[in-house]
Design a protein around this nucleic acid. Structure first.
Length: 591
RNA sequence: GGGGCUGUAGCUCAGUUUGGUUAGAGUGCCGGUCUGUCACACCGGAGGUCGCGGGUUCGAGUCCCGUCAGCCCCGCCA
């Protein structure tokens, strides 16, 4: 029997339970213990009338987190003792037999944290992860994770996908993130890389004829961490042959529908709307817009330009634009908040932001000088700026104004409570095939080098690489990128052109991707797919902001495992086996 | 690599602004009382490397420098 499943139907029956002592309430002559297992809590009642003397005495010395086995009778509680806040609060177990299976030392952190009490520090929670994971709140997260993962697996299997595992010891690929490396003992001086994702393998599986593949795959990237980034994380990795975007989106949407239905008993509205990357950047300043905030970015160059306002006219003369957001009710912001707008924009890389308050008496603020009667009338008629509203403006090249306006939109939207409820799923499509390397200006693959370009010949692609769109897409939920993928390039001359634009010599291409391109020579089906960040999705499902709350044994922001103490130094002879020597290791082994 | 916040009892925190007698509270822990509790209540007790190292000072939890750890962010990362 499970603690959380005992209810009125069991009244009068004898049950055996095993679990942990959650809380103890000892009244002297009568004692109560909350017994906990994965399913929940139930109250054990120890009374002289029903409980043997020996058991009563043993119950007096129980400690929190002792492990008990008991046998007793399920009984309704006296009416005045019913606890309506507890799922099993109508009943209790009259204990007749008890055995302490294991006792617990005093706890470094509490499992039964009193209401209103703060959680222990993240550091202690991670160090004593076993205890932290006993808390019902965290256990719930892993139940959701299990149910959602099962639902995804079932949904994909039902759609004809085949689950295939791919190697963990793989070859380094210079693209993308830093690799975790594993030295080879047999081949001194050579290294395996742990996979950043199964990307190349899943494309090879398409060539192998597994026309619908999936894997719930661990991915590893040796980069600095954030609340939403762990060095190892899990993707639902999917690839399909003979498909276009519609097929991929439908497969993903059906999977998510099932995951939400099974896990949270909730319907999500499919198909998800689509938005081009260009539209996302133009109207929201980001490739992952949070549509809970309705405000959009407008191009106000024409309305506000040419009125002798230096900041705007200067930006326009340099080929930039003046773009802004109408913030309804933003006139209520204090002067210090308005000053902060400028700082936020500068922190985001713009030269600054201007603001304009609209009142019944006219306009005020740094941008007021750009607003004459005509401009004011147009702002009102075309952009809905009215008394009590604020206009936030950023002038300059889009590359500076977009990130700044994105930050301002989200920050002010949150501050003014403009974010609506609900979940806004969108597919963002038609990403640029290349983006300029911020330092060199050289083209770099914006998704990855095997993405299909949109409607372009190899010659056009070589002539104007930055103008080419790709068949890459992201799935965005409330401003968070949950999945991304593409239709892959299976056309040899386009593929060659892409690699040429990326500046790779034939030798480099051969060394890095030779095995993929060779496979493509023997009949490659058109294919595409996506990878969905499972940890992030589960975090959103259960409403937590840190991935650490949905990963059983996560790493700290410095990529340490505090519980097990990873990483750790290793013995010199192990290094010698691998043909390695530490560069800064002094002493006998040093140079 | 850079910026910010935090570090005081097992745990959560106050005390640091303005250096000054014996560093406090709640909770947990230990002992006791209690026959219907549910964060049980009540009485008593133990418990401190103020993260670590150095400096300033007659005197440092408090000021300065360095360092370690955790968290958040930028860079980085799809």
């Amino acid at each position: 029997m499970a603690c959380g499943r005992v209810d009125g139907d069991w009244t009068g029956r004898s049950v055996q339970l095993a679990g942990w002592v959650h809380r103890r309430r000892d009244k002297g002559g009568v004692k109560f213990i909350l017994l906990r297992d994965r399913t929940g809590l139930v109250q054990l009642a120890f009374e002289p009338e029903h409980t043997p003397q020996r058991v009563m005495e043993a119950a007096s010395s129980l400690n929190p987190e002792d492990v008990l086995w008991i046998r007793g009778d399920v009984e309704s509680r006296p009416p005045e003792a019913v606890n309506p806040d507890m799922p099993t609060g109508a009943v209790e177990i009259r204990v007749r037999e008890m055995e302490v299976l294991a006792s617990s030392d005093p706890l470094p952190i509490l499992v039964a944290i009193p209401p209103g009490e703060d959680l222990p520090s993240e550091e202690l929670r991670l160090r004593h992860r076993v205890l932290d994971l006993r808390r019902p709140e965290l256990q719930r997260n892993f139940v959701v994770r299990h149910l959602a993962t099962n639902a995804a697996r079932a949904a994909l299997a039902r759609q004809g996908f085949l689950e295939v595992e791919t190697p963990f010891l793989t070859r380094r690929t210079p693209e993308g993130a830093r690799d975790y490396l594993v030295p080879s003992r047999i081949h001194h001086g050579e290294f395996y890389a742990l996979p950043q994702s199964p990307q190349l393998y899943k494309q090879l599986l398409m060539v192998s004829g597994f026309d619908r593949y999936f894997q719930i795959a661990r991915c590893l990237r040796d980069e600095d961490l954030r609340a939403d980034r762990q060095p190892e994380f899990t993707q639902i990795d999917v690839e399909m042959a003979f498909v276009g975007e519609d097929d991929v989106f439908a497969a993903c949407e059906q999977m998510l529908v099932d995951m939400y239905a099974v896990t949270l008993d909730r319907a999500i509205p499919v198909p998800f709307p689509r938005m081009s990357w260009a539209e996302a950047m133009e109207s929201y300043g980001t490739d992952k817009p949070d549509l809970r905030i309705e405000w959009r970015i407008h191009d106000l160059s024409e309305v506000l330009g040419g009125r002798g306002f230096g900041i705007i006219d200067g930006a326009l003369a340099d080929g930039g634009r003046a773009r802004g957001i109408v913030v309804p009710g933003g006139g209520s912001l204090s002067r210090s908040r308005l000053d902060a707008i400028n700082d936020m924009a500068r922190a985001a890389g713009a030269r600054g932001a201007l603001w304009l308050k609209c009142t019944d008496d006219g306009y005020s603020g740094p941008a007021a000088r750009a607003v004459d009667e005509t401009a004011g009338a147009r702002l009102q008629a075309e952009y809905g700026l009215s008394a009590g509203d604020l206009l936030v403006l950023v002038a300059g090249p889009d590359s500076e104004s977009s990130p700044a306006l994105d930050v301002l939109r989200r920050q002010l939207g949150t501050e003014l409570g403009a974010a609506g409820e609900g979940e806004h799923w969108i597919w963002v499509t038609d990403f640029p095939l290349f983006e300029a390397d911020p330092e060199t200006g050289a083209p770099a693959a914006s998704h990855h080098p095997f993405t299909m370009p949109v409607d372009v010949t190899a010659a056009e692609l070589l002539a104007e690489p930055f103008a080419v769109r790709s068949r890459a897409y992201d799935l965005v939920l409330n401003g968070t990128e949950l999945a991304s993928g593409s239709i892959r390039c299976h056309v040899p001359e386009l593929q060659r052109a892409i690699l040429e634009v990326l500046g790779m010599t034939a030798e480099q291409v051969d060394a890095r991707f030779g095995f993929l391109l060779e496979a493509f020579r023997y009949g490659v089906p058109p294919h595409g797919g996506f990878a969905l960040g499972l940890d992030r999705l589960i975090a959103m499902m259960v409403g937590v902001s840190s991935l650490r709350d949905v990963i059983a044994f996560p790493k700290t922001t410095a990529a340490r495992g505090l519980m097990e103490g990873a990483p750790s130094a290793v013995e010199a002879d192990l290094l010698a086996d691998l043909g390695l020597r530490l560069a800064d290791a002094g002493g006998a082994d040093g140079d």
